[in-house]
Design a protein around this nucleic acid. Structure first.
Lengths: 240, 240
DNA sequence: CGTGAATTTGATTTAGCTCAAGCGGGGTGG
DNA sequence: CCACCCCGCTTGAGCTAAATCAAATTCACG
């Protein structure tokens, strides 16, 4: 059976057979959870690290004024909370955006792997570095771009990431189970303004967004409008 | 001689003697560079990873419209570009903000250390995770807060980080060698608005900012105004 | 069908931007 | 030692992107 997690890691390096088996063992008893399920609560101290095998999830932080800011989307193959292996306490929460399949890796197993299996240690670290790169891009997105540029950029990113794991349709469409309110929490805008900016993008013929699905009509133009350059994602051509 | 880098790592875990010596060997031939020196250029592929032993530096990304966004500040003890060990290409640049001392660690040495020295592997990974946590906080800062809250938050963060390595004065003041223009690039605001927001913070008696030095007058109030909660920094009490 | 959530639209307000001009201070060359 | 000049800071006057408030409409779903 395909395992999005192992596949992701193997785009980075070919694992020794024993490491791959080690990973697959832990993935052998996944859980299925519904949409809107809180995988991890902010402030919590966890015994396990989670991996998303299928579905969508989001990281988010609660502000002191009660507002919520999204910090990143998780797609199949992503670690949810690798930090807790070393940092102990979650500084943000994670919840699913669709029915999902997750596995729990005991924290101690991760630590042991890092000590005993150098290839896995590298791979885990690599996952963290990728996350970092995305976070940096989000910062420039929030700091420097207009409302519709931000949205455009977000869609470009999601498309690139989903395409890299085979979850984008050839016609440029992909599932993205979020509401406009949630888009607002992602790019720091009010719902009303998200709606108007989306409308502008639609009217410019760049994309459409309906019932949790994005379709990019003109990738070329959308990317150039958004100032999107996929290199920050450090994607490697997917070995088949 | 004190070594800010080794000290930082040892707040996380006590290194085996041999690992410490390994680090210190590489730190034995540092370079001194001036202010405004470009340590790493965006897009570059580097043979070395850099560590800042003293001074200030900043990560930044150039937008397609020519604007610049700051992505983080580097203070003594920080890795500049640990990513290149695994990611090959820099997705942002780094330059000093003051005269600084840096050391160059050959990429291959880092990779070898990760394979052979599990404690160091953990420590390096921990550094990445800390960075990530700071990046996430910056995202919520940019996405959800007003101009003066953003600035206040930035000052709280710098104070906490500098204090943790003994670079903050007991009176709440610390060196922060940036101009108002640069503050703008940090929090996504125009110079003019930075100036007005700073003025407001000064007039509220919270802090002062003059000639590259910040002084926080009322830490309690500033933190509560900024919605600052230092837990995201995952600081550990500094062992003396 | 009915009901609550999500989207759309309009009207108004505001935070932050741009443009433009004046000011201070520290460093340089005459 | 003075004059100048450049850079960073300050202030003012519009202007605009985005927020807020409020209501209507559509949609998904039981």
């Amino acid at each position: 059976m395909r395992n999005a997690f192992v596949e992701k890691i193997e785009t980075f390096l070919a694992l020794p057979e024993s490491d791959r088996r080690w990973l697959e063992t832990f993935c052998s008893s996944p859980r299925t959870v519904g949409s809107g399920f809180e995988l991890v609560r902010e402030g919590e101290k966890l015994p396990d690290v989670h991996v998303l095998l299928s579905g969508f999830a989001v990281r988010s932080k609660l502000m002191h004024d009660g507002e919520e800011q999204f910090l990143g989307y998780l797609i199949p193959g992503d670690f949810c909370d690798l930090h807790v292996a070393l940092l102990e306490r979650m500084d943000h929460g994670i919840r699913t955006l669709s029915p999902s399949v997750v596995v729990d890796l005991p924290r101690d197993a991760i630590l042991e792997a890092v000590s005993r299996r150098p290839e896995l240690a590298k791979a885990f670290w690599w996952c963290s570095l990728l996350n970092e790169a995305i976070l940096r891009e989000w910062i420039s997105n929030l700091g420097q771009k207009s409302a519709s540029e931000r949205l455009a950029h977000l869609f470009c990113e999601m498309h690139a990431r989903l395409a890299s794991i085979g979850l984008a349709h050839r016609d440029g469409s992909f599932a993205f189970p979020v509401t406009q309110l949630e888009l607002g929490k992602t790019v720091g805008l009010s719902v009303v303004h998200v709606q108007r900016s989306l409308k502008a993008l639609k009217e410019a013929g760049l994309l459409s967004f309906r019932s949790a699905r994005v379709r990019i009509n003109d990738m070329e133009q959308l990317q150039s409008f958004a100032g999107f350059d996929s290199r920050y994602l450090h994607l490697r051509p997917r070995p088949v």
